[in-house]
Computed example of a mutant assay.
Amino acid sequence: MDTGELLKSIKVGEKYEVITTWHGVPVRIKQKVRWVSVSDRLISFDFSDCKFKRAFSNEKVYVRLGELYLECDIFSNIRDELVLYVNMVSPPPPVVMREFVRVEPSESQPVYVSFCAGEDCIVSAKAVDVSESGVSVMLSKEDVAKLFSMLNSAEGEAYHKTFSMVIKLPEESSISALGELKNILNKDEGIYFRLGFKIELKPADLKKLRSYIMKRQREIL
């Protein structure tokens, strides 16, 4: 079924699930359709009773139609109406497939991640986001070089290597983790790099991290 046929199948007055993320936190709500323009590829939702309007600003939005999803951009979000422009039929979005909720730490209360060799922590950085199973950090080119030097590895050889990590949570004692490098993204023309790690935690430390994530979700929403 193509995009036009799916738009024609949407019924005005019925509620559909609308999905996005806000600072890494999944937002999944059901809202009533006001009108649909098949030719303009637009869907209007009644947002008069929506408590999460601010979440619908910059991120992609997905409308669920049974087992299918429409990937959308926000056309307008004014007062009590959300209008979406439909790009295409999409597979389930990452927020639906993700096993654990990922949150972005606040600027005023950052999460710090340190990479250690023995008892010496040679690189420390703010976390970009964190979940029960992973953490991402932004490092300068120089700090990335230090990290790879610690492993005696070049960039292409560092994937799936493990690091000892110390994660400092706001208002909590530090927790220890074993991190496996999963991805490296080049940012700002090679000046900064975003590194993503899969992490393993002891039960007591996992409990602390889970508590922080739940608290941060409440703050964000």
Rank of each mutant, 00 (worst) to 15 (best):
residue 71 E to W: 00
residue 74 I to R: 02
residue 154 A to G: 13
residue 146 K to S: 12
residue 122 I to C: 09
residue 177 A to W: 04
residue 58 N to E: 13
residue 108 S to P: 00
residue 10 I to Q: 02
residue 168 K to D: 12
residue 160 H to E: 12
residue 207 K to G: 00
residue 155 E to W: 12
residue 48 S to N: 06
residue 171 E to N: 15
residue 190 G to E: 04
residue 8 K to H: 07
residue 16 Y to K: 07
residue 184 I to L: 09
residue 82 L to C: 03
residue 32 K to W: 00
residue 59 E to Y: 00
residue 15 K to H: 01
residue 198 K to Q: 13
residue 166 V to H: 06
residue 112 Y to V: 14
residue 176 S to K: 13
residue 166 V to L: 09
residue 162 T to I: 09
residue 106 S to Y: 04
residue 135 V to Q: 05
residue 27 V to M: 04
residue 64 R to Y: 00
residue 12 V to L: 02
residue 201 L to D: 03
residue 88 M to S: 15
residue 105 P to C: 05
residue 128 V to W: 08
residue 123 V to I: 10
residue 92 P to A: 11
residue 148 F to C: 11
residue 144 V to S: 07
residue 90 S to W: 03
residue 160 H to Q: 12
residue 213 I to T: 10
residue 33 V to W: 02
residue 116 C to M: 05
residue 150 M to T: 14
residue 182 K to W: 01
residue 190 G to I: 08
residue 214 M to A: 15
residue 153 S to I: 05
residue 22 W to K: 09
residue 221 L to E: 05
residue 191 I to D: 10
residue 63 V to A: 11
residue 200 E to K: 14
residue 78 I to K: 10
residue 128 V to D: 13
residue 113 V to I: 12
residue 49 D to G: 09
residue 51 K to I: 02
residue 170 P to E: 07
residue 98 R to S: 14
residue 64 R to H: 03
residue 162 T to S: 11
residue 35 W to S: 15
residue 145 A to M: 10
residue 212 Y to S: 09
